[in-house]
């Protein structure tokens, strides 16, 4: 029985996903959806699941049973990414719907979630709450100042993953080398986060 996953490329998916999760958690905005990575990990999880099933059929002793439970435990450790994104979508739903480029950063399922959430949100206020009882011109929910927007100028902690030389930070330049930790404005570093040259911590 082959217990080993021989695909060498798979080694880093797990850690990549954790990095993507950390970035998502630390960034003030919604980052582009990591479609390829999530699909690859999904596939790997399905493989692992069927692998575990196979093992279970062959299992004879308690050690094997225990090793199987370890494999399952690893799969359990992998699901925070979607949760954090949904949390952000709920927060910024109106802003995301209003901006085409940011709307496209979501996966089709997330887009659906965002639309339905907004729909429910409006229905709730109009039908269940007090809104329908107050003057019509005060009933609007989508005025500019009401929309919760991400604070792109918030400061974040950055861990530099490769030597980048001088990076433009506001009006100045800052030398950033692999291993450095810098606290800086998110808007100054957003593109490098997306290119995964730095990670947020």
């Amino acid at each position: 029985m082959d217990y080993v996953n021989n695909d060498d490329d798979q080694t880093s998916y797990d850690l990549l996903l954790k990095r993507v999760w950390r970035n998502e958690r630390c960034s003030p905005t919604l980052l582009p959806y990591e479609k390829e990575l999530v699909e690859t990990v999904d596939l790997a999880i399905k493989d692992q699941d069927s692998c575990i099933e196979e093992l279970r059929k062959m299992s004879k002793d308690s050690t094997t049973d225990f090793m199987i439970s370890l494999l399952e435990l690893e799969l359990d450790r992998l699901n925070s990414y979607h949760r954090d994104r949904l949390k952000k979508i709920q927060q910024f739903h109106a802003h995301l719907l209003a901006n085409k480029s940011e709307f496209d950063m979501m996966s089709p399922l997330e887009q659906k979630f965002c639309e339905q959430f907004t729909d429910l949100f409006e229905k709730h206020f109009n039908n269940c709450c007090f809104l329908s009882g107050i003057p019509e011109k005060l009933q609007k929910l989508n005025l500019q100042y009401m929309i919760v927007k991400p604070e792109v100028d918030n400061h974040v902690f950055v861990h530099v993953l490769e030597d980048l030389g001088d990076v433009q930070v506001g009006d100045a330049e800052l030398e950033m080398n692999s291993g450095d930790f810098v606290c800086m404005k998110f808007s100054d570093i957003a593109s490098l986060v997306e290119q995964q040259k730095v990670e947020l911590v």
């Binding site: 080993v4 798979q10 797990d14």
Partner: peptide, 21 residues
């Protein structure tokens, strides 16, 4: 997720985790 060294008290084959074997 950091790696650490252990001294096992049992024997078992190599196992494939998502993060590597």
């Amino acid at each position: 997720d950091e790696m650490i060294e252990i001294i096992p008290r049992f024997s078992f084959q190599e196992i494939g985790l998502l993060s590597g074997s």
